[in-house]
Nucleic acid binder design. Sequence first.
RNA 1: GGAGAGAUGGCCGAGUGGACGAAGGCGUUCGCCUGCUAAGCGAAUGUAGGGCCAAAAGCUCUACCGAGGGUUCGAAUCCCUCUCUCUCCGCCA
Length: 423
Amino acid sequence: MVDVKFIRQNVDLVKNALQNRGSSIDLATLMDLDDRRRAIIQKAEELKAQRNQFSLRIARAKGEGGDLEQEKSEMRRISDEIKALDGQIREVETAIEAFVLEIPNIPHESVPVGRDSSDNPVVRTWGAKPQFSFAPKDHWDIGENLGILDFKRAAKITGARFTVSWGAGSRLERSLISFMLDVHTRDHGCTEVWTPFMVNRDSMTATGQLPKFEEELFKTDDYFLIPTAEVPVTNLYRDETLPEEDLPIKLVSYTPCFRREAGSYGKDTRGLIRQHQFNKVELVRFAHPERSFTDLEELTAEAENILRKLNLHYRVVTLCTADLGFSSAKTYDLEVWMPAQGVFREISSCSNFLDFQARRGQIRYKSKQGKKTELCHTLNGSGLAVGRTVAAILENYQLEDGTVRVPDALKPYMGLDLIGPIG
RNA sequence: GGAGAGAUGGCCGAGUGGACGAAGGCGUUCGCCUGCUAAGCGAAUGUAGGGCCAAAAGCUCUACCGAGGGUUCGAAUCCCUCUCUCUCCGCCA
């Protein structure tokens, strides 16, 4: 959530930022509401101050047994007026809140202005494309041929965009989760957390999934299924004040993720790339505002480190203004090389949300001297999306006979050097 | 699912209609004192919003005792609804 006070003082800047994002929100409506709000507050508070004084006088006079009927009826009038004004204030504030919750974050000044994903500049590229003496197969063909991926039965027991993994495939999924968690906790100093996979409406609102993207979420009568661990993990400290010296707080969490993928019909219909349920290891940071961009670089490097250890060719792009997620001020996408299609595919998204989520969720910090309580900055990034990592490994490590080599880093976890056919 | 108890400041805990933003204690911070430490003494110590101010500082007003509504001139205190927590019973991986 962008601060209304900030918007008021920087209307043109915000207007411009929204335009760069391709958003057509009319700020004039908001400014009118805010003007009205302050006018009513002023009136109401004046009356309240009056009421308090009357109240005091009545209390004092009570002992002396004076006739206070006149004061009382006057007070009744004031009280009624206050009640009416308070109702109006509530109304206006509800409207303002609803409005502001729909405003996306303001892109950081270092974010390039662009029209779509083709305007995302490449920051760096790591590794090299693997060379094949044969035509590399798609990961879904490799997986189905080996018997480790089973899309048909997943469709039978649930539906489209779900996957069953068998044997080494299942083990690969589990190995990757363990491997990633181990690297992030052991080498990067993150604390591992295990959270609920369903959350309430307040949590979804704090991180920015709600109110705007409800159609993207699966839900039960009572709760929402998390689309990413970002939601439960960031909300760990909702409505809390953290000690300044604890920042940055570095967390890592494995969770399954559930997404409706509404509006993506016909996109990535085969394979592991776009699923309704997938596994992800997520990095989350609560940062000091003064160094959150350093944190973003560090967090991105931590995610990259997984790809490097797996020896997967990838590149880093900066999302331009048009491609930036709703809550983010700056995002780096890590894109892994997929040899079968000959393209780079997103495998991690690392973002700095500044105080956007912290304001929605009231996540704050305070110095030991207790000077001031201020909003934290929050960040997160996939470290990594597990399903897509499986896809990348199958494609990049495939051999001509249809088997798949196990990356060195995973051998201790897999207890195998080669994934062969199940049978 | 059934029965009961509860929700007050960073924490503990008092407060059943009027000077209560809220006693007392603990904690924390600053100062004093003391060979050092501990103890002791003194002071400070919530959040949000509005106004004044170019702004900060500061001053001032308002709100907040789980949430919302009601009664009343006046509500932490009385009434209603909701949420959450705890205890016991039942069921269950």
